[in-house]
Amino acid sequence: MNRILVKKELAPKIKLIEFENRDIASKAKPGQFVVIQMGEKGERFPLTISGIDPGKGMVRVIFNEVGKSSKRLGALAEGEEIGNVAGPLGNPAEIEKFGTVLCFGGGVMTGPMAYEAAAFKKAGNRVITVIGARNKELLILKDEMNALSDKLYVSTDDGSEGYKGLDFLRDILEGEKVDRVIGMSVATATLRTLCELTRPYGVKTIVSLTPIMLDGTGMCGVCRVVVGGQTKFACVDGPEFDGHLVDWDLLESRKRVYSHEERVSTLLDEQVGKDCASRFQQTRK
């Protein structure tokens, strides 16, 4: 179970993994995610599903190698097994014929966006896609996105390819009627910018949120976000929400809680390369 079938590096520190899990592959829909645990000591971390092949029992994820867990996943070779994978989790995206849909995929989340955009296309929408990244080396899945969209735009933070930043979206929204905007990015600030851009145009903007998660099944509440003044658990009520109603300050603040511990974990993993003694082992009788 969860054997890696294909592994590729799409860009520096961005990996694609296709693994075998028939249960998930037969059920997953765009917008849903899996929770992965690398070994019994690992933390549970979520990755959005970037595609499936029910026939082969294949599930695809695309991820940044940022800390201990994602680096360990990225270090596995084809043929190795991932350990624990639970899914699909979260609500499927609302896929309907809206008319013209603008799909924004930032960084690694271009992966799941490609999966979702394809579903919008299949549902009969005109699909405009925007892929974004910090710089041109980090742009991924351009060809795949191009093939499934009616129009593709590229944006980079530094302007090294395509448009610089997201301001050009105003021209699109001025120029034609867009019925719905969908945004995915693990960078909360980017999604926030997107929502502020679309707000004056009154276009419903759905965003996939990535708060800290633990179980992903609704039993801990760490993933709580405030949407329209109400507290929601992103893992069971989301992860997609109306971006114009999200309390972004709160989300950004809640995502930072463990940054120090994450750094400790990553540094120790790199430098010591093995588990270090815990505070309780010192007091063990």
């Binding site: 000591k41 760490v222 400790v264 588990d275």
Partner: peptide
Amino acid sequence: NMVYSANEFLVRLNLMKAYLFPAYDTP
């Protein structure tokens, strides 16, 4: 921040063994 549901607090400690962080990954 630092408002935990008891479930979150207990899941981190019991299920994920956060008391052994960083030997276990969950803080």
